[in-house]
Amino acid sequence: MSLHILWIVFGLIGAIWIFWDTRNQGYTFPASFRWAIGTFLVPAAVIPLYLMQSNLKSRQKPPRGKPQDVTSEMFQRCNYCGEFYQGNPEHCPKCKRLLKED
């Protein structure tokens, strides 16, 4: 197989994969298309560049939203009777003693 044909096949396979991957990551169609065209034309340069930027993008912290009450999912132990309760109640469900102090 000629080196030119191998280069075209490699570029075409890379372009299809990058187009599919960018669409799965939420890129717009024009952005995905630009990545695919760049990969088809210069696969040896664009594929490593795409992998590096994709790796950096996946390491970014998720955007900060509203604070969530994580205690609603946890089980806690009452300091007075020792029973476990879930959520963030003001009084123990078993002994009815005040759990929150101001």
Results as ranks from 00 to 15, higher is better:
I8F: 14
I37P: 07
D102W: 07
D21G: 09
L3Y: 10
G38P: 12
W7A: 14
E90T: 09
L99A: 11
L3E: 15
T22M: 09
R23I: 03
F75T: 04
L49W: 10
Q25A: 13
G11M: 14
P93Y: 01
K100C: 02
H91M: 06
I18Q: 02
S2W: 07
L51V: 08
T28D: 10
C92S: 01
Q60M: 13
P93H: 03
G87W: 00
Q76G: 00
Q86K: 15
Y85T: 00
S72L: 06
Y50E: 12
N55V: 04
F40N: 11
Q76C: 01
G38V: 06
F10T: 06
Y50P: 09
A15G: 15
P89C: 10
C81I: 04
D21V: 13
S72K: 00
S32A: 15
I47M: 14
W35V: 00
V46K: 10
K94G: 01
H4Y: 10
L6D: 09
Q68H: 05
G26I: 07
G82P: 10
P63Y: 02
K100V: 04
L56N: 14
D21C: 09
L98N: 14
R97D: 03
W35S: 03
D69P: 01
M52F: 12
E73R: 10
P48W: 12
F33E: 07
